[in-house]
């Protein structure tokens, strides 16, 4: 039974889950999407613990509201929309906390991407630090641009799929991707300067 389910597409699996409440179908979908969703949410929020919670919540929402999925949409875009909305909510919650927090400023000042003195040139060439810098720079990009840049360049979605996930027009998606990349390039100029 389970082997048969493994062969099914995402849409067929959710149909099976919707029609017969097959928990194995749900488990297979969770297995398929837990890692990509974790990666997407982590790149968007920059916190591993929080991102795990959000992906869990995404899966629970999927479990509870499975009937709200309509078969004409792609399952991947649907689940990414849920995860994206939860991540954005988390970001709003954090902003609210930041307003009332007195100690937050110090935490943000610890790493400044544009500060050339912060990392020596030979150290910044190191892969891990480079990735960390990119991640920090990504978090400094406006959330509306950040989301589409991650979906495009990290998750590898097409413009149409991103438009479905974000519920925007393709033109808006394209312009936001370019603006996001432009912001990112400005933030990382000291690394990629030749």
């Amino acid at each position: 039974m389970k082997e048969k389910l493994f062969a099914l597409t995402d849409e067929e699996l959710i149909k099976e889950f919707q029609d017969h409440n097959t928990i194995e179908a749900f488990e297979i979908l969770v297995k398929r999407y837990k890692d990509p969703l974790t990666n997407f949410v982590y790149r968007f929020l920059g916190n591993k613990d929080v991102c795990t919670d959000i992906v869990q919540d995404t899966m629970i929402k999927f479990y509870l509201h499975k009937d709200s999925y309509k078969s004409f949409a792609k399952f991947s875009t649907w689940i990414y929309t849920i995860a994206g909305n939860l991540a954005k909510n988390e970001l709003k919650r954090r902003k609210r906390r930041t307003i009332f927090s007195l100690n937050n400023d110090d935490e943000e000042r610890t790493i400044q991407v544009e500060d050339k003195k912060f990392f020596a040139p030979d150290v910044s060439a190191d892969g891990n630090i480079k990735n960390e810098i990119i991640q920090k720079a990504l978090l400094k990009v406006k959330p509306v641009y950040r989301e589409v840049v991650i979906l495009r360049d990290i998750q590898g979605f097409s413009y149409e799929e991103i438009a479905d996930i974000t519920e925007l027009s393709i033109g808006t998606v394209k312009s936001r991707i370019n603006r996001g990349r432009s912001q990112l390039q400005k933030l990382l100029k000291n690394i990629y300067r030749e």
Binding site: E27, V30, M59, I134, Q135, L138, L184, L188, Y192
Partner: peptide, 22 residues
């Protein structure tokens, strides 16, 4: 260049006990 660098970023995976907890 930026696109390539972003694609090179390592994949972050869910913790091992993710499914069990869920």
């Amino acid at each position: 260049d930026i696109s390539k660098q972003l694609q090179k970023l390592p994949q972050i995976n869910a913790p091992e006990n993710f499914e069990f907890n869920l």
